[in-house]
Amino acid sequence: MKSRSTVLILAVLVLLGGSLGYVLHARQRGGGPQLVAAEASFTLEQPGLYYRDTATGRVARSPGGVPDGPSCARFYAAGDRALCLRALPGTPARTEAVVYDRRFTELRRVTVPGIPNRARVSPSGQVLSWTTFAVGDSYAAGRFSTRTSVLDLRTGYLIKSVEEIPLTIGDTRYHAADINYWGVNFAADDNRFYATVSTGGRTHLVEGDLKAWSARTLRENVECPSLSPDGTRIAFKKKVSADPVAPWRLYVLDLADLREHPLAETRSVDDQAAWLDDSTLAYALPAHGSKATDVWSTPADGSGTPSLVLPGASSPVTVPPASPASY
């Protein structure tokens, strides 16, 4: 039983890039992560690179670097909205998903089971998605599973689990108890989305349609997709090794012909990469000698070399100037 528990913990740490360890450490201290609100002067109205400061758990902006934003385990922003995932103290594990406007006024708060894993906001800011890591599903036989939700701010409707969406693999409508979705992100129309689905020991890139309530697979071995700002490419992590500690490499897929190419980053990246612009990707990697992570960047065309962007950081996202309608 002890060896089985050890294997489970290692598998979870690989999937989450250490976020579970953070939550367990907080619980062992007899509490949980402090839920800190943003300072009144901290907003998204200044353009820049926003990120989570790993030392404090709070959101900061570069240039500037003062972590005066809210405390988050995962963070993302787009349009005029921001999404913050927080790991709540206690057991069973729960996540609080908080939606903010550009001034970090809270708009919506949802509590879901599981540990924070992925967060995304559509380009308009009107549709949001988050993924949590959960254990205990009967089909999982003691292994992990994910829960992915979608919130439409236009209607207020919350899809608690996209696992319910009809899935087509190849040309066949597919049914299975072990279907898991994660890493949902949206196209500019607030309807089409891309995500990873896992079933039968395989991962697939899926393209989904919220209005038609359907999803279909495009290809195998794609995890944590991230759609480029121009909507033509997807960055993703691909499993290229059987090494459980370092199995992935970052790739970019051209949606027009489904051709892919590896990026210059050869280290194993366990993150959903973020597009800083149409030609550059950013992602978190473990910092040497600590439990923190650093944010690195690399060209999306596979050229060049990786560059350190932000030490002690995670959840990078570029926030452009606010539109006049947001004031």
Results as ranks from 00 to 15, higher is better:
78 A>T: 00
22 Y>S: 12
270 D>V: 08
316 P>C: 07
33 P>L: 12
199 T>A: 13
180 N>I: 07
153 L>E: 00
62 S>L: 15
297 S>M: 15
237 K>R: 12
86 R>V: 11
292 A>N: 15
300 A>M: 06
237 K>F: 00
39 E>W: 07
124 S>C: 00
182 W>H: 13
122 S>K: 00
37 A>H: 12
1 M>A: 10
73 A>R: 07
247 P>N: 01
196 T>L: 11
36 V>Q: 14
18 G>L: 06
5 S>I: 08
136 G>M: 04
280 T>P: 10
46 Q>P: 07
65 G>H: 13
36 V>Y: 11
37 A>N: 13
220 E>P: 08
46 Q>D: 14
203 T>C: 06
60 A>E: 07
245 V>Q: 08
59 V>M: 04
159 I>L: 15
130 W>T: 02
223 E>I: 05
223 E>T: 11
315 S>A: 13
144 F>M: 10
318 T>D: 14
230 D>C: 05
199 T>N: 08
163 E>H: 11
159 I>V: 13
64 G>D: 12
132 T>V: 11
240 V>A: 05
94 R>F: 08
286 P>N: 01
133 F>M: 11
212 A>G: 15
85 L>I: 03
325 A>D: 03
307 S>I: 11
54 T>D: 12
172 T>N: 12
247 P>D: 01
174 Y>P: 07
147 R>P: 04
234 I>A: 02
145 S>E: 10
285 L>M: 06
322 A>K: 00
108 R>S: 04
110 V>K: 08
23 V>L: 04
